[in-house]
Design a binder for these strands. Structure first.
Lengths: 165, 165
DNA sequence: AATCAATGTAATAACTTTCGTTATAACGAT
DNA sequence: ATCGTTATAACGAAAGTTATTACATTGATT
C-alpha cells in the first residue's frame, strides 16, 4: 500500500500558500483550482493541519496562513497531521498469530523493534525537510521557468539548452 | 495508509522456516496454522517470494526452503517482493495538478527528489536487516522462553525477573 | 496407473480505506 | 441581513486487502 495523496496535497497547499499568499486569499476553492481535487477534500486537510497547529484558517472571512515559521514546520509534522495511521505504525501486522506456536507467540517481540527502526529512519528523513525548503524550491522552479521564456538567451548561454527552431 | 500485512506475514514465514525447517515440511497449511490466515494467502505470498528468487517451493510434494543464504536475503528484498506498489513509489501523488498554475505545473519537479530521499532512507534501513537477523532473533526469543519455564532459577539469577508467588 | 497431499491460480465476496459529491449549519465581515 | 467562506456529516463510488471456495496441476508413493 502507498501513503495516501493527502500528504502530497498538503505539501502542495504549503507551496501554494508561499507563492500566492501575498497576492491572493488562500481559500479552499482557490487551492482546489491548483490541486484539482474537490474543495471539501482540501477543507478536511486544512482542518487536519489546523488541528496539528501548523496553520491558521479564518472562518467566515476565509483564508489560510502559516501558524509557525516555515523552518519550524517539517515534512514529518505534515505527514503526521494528515496521515491518520493506527497507533502511528507504518507497518500493518497480521492480527492473529497463533499463541500456541513458538513463532506466532514471539513474532511481535521479534519484529517490533526492527520495524520501528525502519519507520524511524523514514521519519527522521522527513524531519530534515521543512516548509522553508519547499518555499525555496518552488520559487526557484518558477523563477527558472520565467527566465526560460522571457530571457531565453541567458539560459542558452548558461546551460546550452536546445530551443526548437 | 499502512503497508499491508503481507510484509509481516512474509517475515513470519521466514522465521517459521528457520525454526521448523529441520523437523517439519513447510507447507502453506503448516504456515497458515502459525500465522492464522487462510492458506491461499500464504500460497500467494510464497509465490511472490519465489518469483523474487528468495525461496524455492516444491510443487506436488510440497514444502518451501530458502533459495539463498539467510544473510543474503534482506528485509527490502522481502518488502519489494510482496508489496506490489505502483512504480515502486511509497508516496501516492494527487493525479491532476493544474498545469495552468505555476505551482501545479512544478509540484512534481519540486517534490519528487525529496520524496525519493525519504523513501530511500526507509529502504536503506530495510536493507540493513536480513533473514539471518530474523533467525538469530527468533532463536534467542524461543531459547529465553524455554529457559524461563524449565530452568527458571537461572533466569532469575541473571535478570532478576519477578515471578508471581 | 491410480492415489494423494500439496501447489498454482482464478473467481468471488466481505471488509476497509480513499476519494468525490452533496447538503447544511455556523461563522464573520460588510 | 447578506454573502462568501469554513466545518462537518452523510452517502456513494472506486480501489485495495483479506478471506474463501473451487479446481486444475504437480510429483512422489503405492
Amino acid at each position: 500500500m502507498q501513503i495516501s495523496s493527502r500528504f502530497t496535497i498538503a505539501l502542495h497547499i504549503f507551496a501554494a500558500m508561499d507563492v500566492f499568499g501575498k497576492d491572493y486569499k488562500i481559500t479552499s476553492d482557490f487551492l482546489a483550482g491548483s490541486i484539482q481535487v474537490n474543495s471539501v477534500i482540501i477543507r478536511n486537510i486544512l482542518s487536519q493541519l489546523r488541528n496539528a497547529g501548523l496553520i491558521k484558517v479564518s472562518r467566515g472571512t476565509g483564508g489560510a496562513e502559516l501558524a509557525k515559521a516555515p523552518e519550524e514546520i517539517t515534512f514529518y509534522d505534515i505527514y503526521a497531521a494528515v496521515e491518520s495511521v493506527e497507533d502511528g505504525k507504518l507497518f500493518r501486522f497480521h492480527k492473529n498469530p497463533n499463541p500456541d506456536c513458538p513463532v506466532g507467540r514471539n513474532i511481535h517481540l521479534l519484529l517490533d523493534d526492527m520495524l520501528d527502526d525502519i519507520q524511524d529512519a523514514m521519519e527522521k528523513e522527513m524531519k530534515r525537510y521543512t516548509v522553508a525548503d519547499l518555499n525555496g524550491g518552488i520559487e526557484d522552479l518558477i523563477g527558472a521557468e520565467t527566465s526560460e521564456n522571457q530571457i531565453g538567451v541567458e539560459a542558452e548561454n548558461q546551460a546550452g539548452t536546445e530551443t526548437e527552431a
